[in-house]
């Protein structure tokens, strides 16, 4: 008699999502929920949601969630973690949120080595507000605010956040993963689990950058979007682990 081998994780609530068809936010949500289930910390996890498509996180996760102002999730998470050090605290942010409006917060939180986990979903545009240019927008990419394509002379270059944060002393784990096919999803699952493991072991700040597609604002079909992630984003945003602390050497 066949047994069920794959089911919805307990931490992910049984609700339909508001995401567009094929949006990998849903996959990233599931991977975070699976990591929380894996460590059995659902009862003591607090999520910090930010402004963006991930703002309805409180509906989709069966954990306590705080809404932070735009970009300020790492600052709010710092307060939560310092007030309740026994809790597992994670933030879930997009690229308009973490790399643009919240750059200062993320850098200083990482530099202080706060023992929190950050899931950073990079889809190269401000998804929820209608596809404006973000700091991570690819060169030449057309958005509603760069109708002729992003030009480095006026708009600069896309920021590689995972590499940049990996240079800071306080960071225990910094990795970039993608969700464009099944193999990438399995690797992403390992990385997100590792990031939570860092927090459970009190190693310091952990960040996972997840490359995602925004099919609606890129104006492509879901399958074309996944192909674009593989062919255009990954060459500029290489996948891998940029920093992994093995012992509590910061003490």
């Amino acid at each position: 008699m066949p047994q069920q081998v794959f089911k919805r994780p307990r931490t992910l609530s049984d609700k339909p999502t508001h995401f567009c068809p094929g949006c990998t936010h849903g996959t990233a949500h599931r991977l975070v929920a699976e990591a929380i289930d894996h460590f059995g910390v659902q009862e003591k996890t607090i999520g910090v949601a930010c402004v963006g498509c991930a703002v309805f996180m409180y509906d989709y996760f069966n954990v306590d969630v705080i809404e932070a102002p735009h970009g300020r999730a790492p600052a709010v998470a710092t307060g939560v973690k310092r007030a309740r050090p026994d809790r597992i605290v994670f933030t879930y942010q997009g690229d308009g949120d973490l790399a643009a409006i919240g750059t200062s917060e993320i850098i200083h939180t990482a530099n202080r080595g706060e023992n929190i986990t950050v899931v950073f979903v990079n889809n190269t545009v401000y998804g929820m507000t209608g596809g404006q240019m973000a700091p991570t927008t690819m060169l030449g990419q057309q958005t509603t605010t760069t109708p002729y394509g992003r030009d480095f002379r006026t708009d600069g270059y896309p920021i590689r956040m995972a590499e940049m944060l990996a240079t800071l002393e306080g960071v225990a784990y910094s990795a970039r993963v993608s969700l464009h096919n099944a193999k990438a999803v399995l690797n992403a699952k390992k990385a997100i689990r590792k990031a939570f493991e860092m927090q459970v072991n009190e190693m310091g700040f952990s960040l996972v950058e997840v490359l995602s597609a925004c099919h609606t604002n890129w104006r492509v079909s879901p399958l074309e979007g996944q192909k674009k992630v593989e062919e255009e984003m990954i060459p500029y945003f290489p996948l891998g682990v940029f920093k992994e602390r093995t012992g509590k050497d910061f003490l």
């Binding site: 794959f6 995401f19 094929g22 849903g26 996959t27 599931r30 969700l179 999803v185 699952k189």
Partner: peptide, 8 residues
């Protein structure tokens, strides 16, 4: 298939 499904 279940791993890649964005809507679980």
């Amino acid at each position: 298939c279940a791993e890649v499904c964005p809507d679980t």
